[in-house]
């Protein structure tokens, strides 16, 4: 049995009175794609920065690729790839110059390696494009190429898809899966609830605490107790209030043109419908919904 690639134990970081990361513990195994889901300011970036020795922890320990993340920082950095939130690119350099610069810094000087990294992220043919002229999606790929140029076994991606359109996002996730197939372990943060679905395991962060970490399916099964209904009723606001006051409705929220209710104890579609109609609302349809990671997040946040 191989040791986990990343072992984090009670990791804590304070900035003055503010606890950015609060006693977080988790493990990541070889070849896994692990997501770290949370809104801005929940401690995702601070966690990654500590694992790369960019910030010192206030408490706790972390072992990355078998090295102490805080005392053997350079060993970790030489073997791990990192793509920071801001996409660390030089806008006034071309694609090729950016990549070969970072390559040179890692001691990778063969043109072949630079070219194959470009091919890996799908930028072949754009070598001479000036970076500032690239679209968000292509900048993202170049930033990934920079993180991959020294062929790391472990990849830290900090919000790699923010600001990128859904098509580019999906293409990016395809790339991540290809990397995972080749044995690279990936740790990726995101604030997109739907994107976390792509990960094999997801950690849910809020206010610096890791609330849960498991496969998306397990999280939904174990955390979202009850049945989910999509209620198409008019007027929506009255429906929202009525359902919120209904017994056995655990939670109700607005979901665009419908209401989303989580119910317990066998409160069925027909009973929901008749309850609303009794209050004078018109109900077009009540249909079963699937739990989402947002439901997981909101449920966890309430406890």
């Amino acid at each position: 049995m191989t040791l986990p690639i990343v072992m984090v134990d009670n990791l804590t970081r304070r900035f003055g009175d503010f606890v950015a990361v609060d006693h977080v513990s988790f493990e990541i195994n070889q070849g896994e794609v692990v997501g770290y889901l949370g809104p801005n300011g929940s401690g995702k970036t601070t966690t990654i920065r500590m694992l790369l020795g960019l910030l010192q922890p206030s408490e706790g320990q972390a072992l990355v690729l078998g090295y102490d993340a805080f005392r053997e920082t350079e060993q970790v950095r030489a073997r791990a790839g990192y793509m920071s939130q801001k996409f660390a690119l030089y806008d006034d350099l071309t694609v090729w110059e950016n990549l070969s610069f970072y390559g040179g810094v890692y001691g990778v000087r063969e043109r072949g390696r630079i070219a194959s990294t470009l091919a890996q992220v799908g930028l072949t043919g754009h070598e001479d494009d000036l970076t500032k002229a690239l679209s968000a999606g292509w900048r993202q790929r170049l930033a990934l190429g920079i993180a991959l140029v020294h062929q790391p076994r472990l990849l830290f991606l900090d919000e790699p898809t923010s600001g990128v359109d859904p098509t580019a996002r999906r293409a990016f996730w395809d790339l991540i899966y290809e990397l995972a197939e080749s044995g690279v372990t990936v740790f990726v943060t995101t604030h997109y609830m739907d994107e976390a679905e792509y990960c094999e395991r997801v950690g849910v962060m809020r206010g610096g605490r890791l609330l849960a970490m498991d496969t998306p399916a397990n999280l939904k099964r174990q955390i979202v107790k009850g049945e989910i209904w999509e209620v198409y009723a008019q007027p929506l606001e009255a429906g929202l209030e009525a359902l919120a006051r209904t017994e056995n409705v655990q939670r109700v929220s607005l979901a665009g043109d419908n209401l989303r209710a989580i119910t317990q104890n066998g409160l069925t579609a027909n009973r929901l419908k008749s309850r609303l109609e009794a209050l004078g609302l018109s109900v077009a349809e009540v249909r079963r919904g699937e739990p989402t990671l947002e439901d997981v997040f909101v449920t966890l946040a309430k406890d």
């Binding site: 809104p39 929940s42 607005l254």
Partner: peptide
Amino acid sequence: TTGVDPVTRQDFWQLVIKLVST
């Protein structure tokens, strides 16, 4: 709502919906 907590997002949307429906 970019980068905002889903709980907050939900509150925010309720306000917007309340605003247009009243």
